[in-house]
């Protein structure tokens, strides 16, 4: 093993109250790769992301970022550790303007210049947001909101990006734009965990994938191998 995994989840168990949403889940992601996290509703995909980002505390197991044990850190601290979590349902703060949403993404970073250049970079990458910077985020279209939350996550210059259902509720054309954008993030060295209902399009851009069922990993392999496994597709992926 030359370099440590960008993200390693080791035998994590987590849940809410009496319900165990993750039994014993392990995932390892190398730097600058995309890992698709697939499975039916209630399989534990969102809980996995929430456990990594510190929203849910694991009852057992470890979470490592860049080889460093970060198990049990709060969500606020995980953001500072370099883990950006874009929750399902997009999570723009509708009452704030586009620019205020973006500024929040880098709010904890030191140096006025650092924050300003992150903002300029975001507008350069997403010109559509630059044109809407003073509008309330609530007035954006679904696709624009998805751009905004991804741009906002990137403001923190994270090492690991957790994307929860970015295609949810978007038109097919926009979905392929979002997928293209996500694929492009890998080129910047970012490690992406992509939770998707839309398994086909997720696997089309991913390097590897895991399939969850009832809180357990039932398959973990290269994206191409998962996509060509007919039985798996029929049972868990629905395409």
């Amino acid at each position: 093993m030359s370099e440590p995994a960008a993200l390693a989840v080791e035998e994590v168990m987590a849940g809410y109250g009496g319900v165990l949403a993750l039994q014993s889940v392990s995932v390892t992601a190398r730097p600058a790769t995309i890992t698709a996290v697939l499975g039916a509703n209630g399989a534990g995909k969102t809980t996995l992301l929430r456990t990594i980002s510190g929203v849910v505390r694991p009852r057992r197991g470890r979470v490592l970022v860049g080889g460093q044990d970060v198990t049990g850190r709060s969500a606020e601290d995980m953001a500072r550790t370099g883990v950006a979590h874009v929750p399902e349902g997009q999570g723009v703060i509708a009452e704030l303007t586009v620019q205020e949403n973006l500024r929040l993404g880098a709010i904890w970073r030191r140096g006025r210049g650092t924050r300003a250049s992150a903002l300029a970079e975001a507008y350069q990458r997403f010109p559509i947001l630059a044109g809407a910077r003073n509008r309330a985020a609530g007035t954006l279209s679904g696709g624009e909101r998805q751009m905004l939350v991804i741009a906002r996550a990137l403001m923190a210059r994270p090492r690991v990006l957790l994307l929860d259902e970015p295609s949810l509720g978007l038109a097919p054309k926009i979905v392929s734009q979002v997928m293209e954008l996500t694929a492009g993030l890998r080129e910047t060295g970012l490690t992406v965990l992509l939770v998707e209902q839309n398994a086909r399009s997720a696997l089309s851009i991913a390097d590897q994938g895991i399939v969850l069922n009832l809180g357990q990993v039932v398959a973990a392999a290269d994206a191409a191998a998962l996509a060509s496994d007919v039985g798996l597709r029929k049972h868990y992926l629905g395409f």
Binding site: S53, V55, S74, A75, E76, A79, R80, A84, H85, P87, G91, I93, A94, E95, L96, E100, R103, L104, G105, I107, W108, R152, A156
Partner: peptide
């Protein structure tokens, strides 16, 4: 101000603010 922005974010949407590193 930055504190003002964080105050508003924490008021409007505590879970999102937390994920962005705001000390809610």
């Amino acid at each position: 101000t930055s504190a003002g922005l964080q105050l508003r974010a924490a008021a409007f949407s505590p879970p999102v603010a937390r994920l962005l590193g705001v000390r809610v």
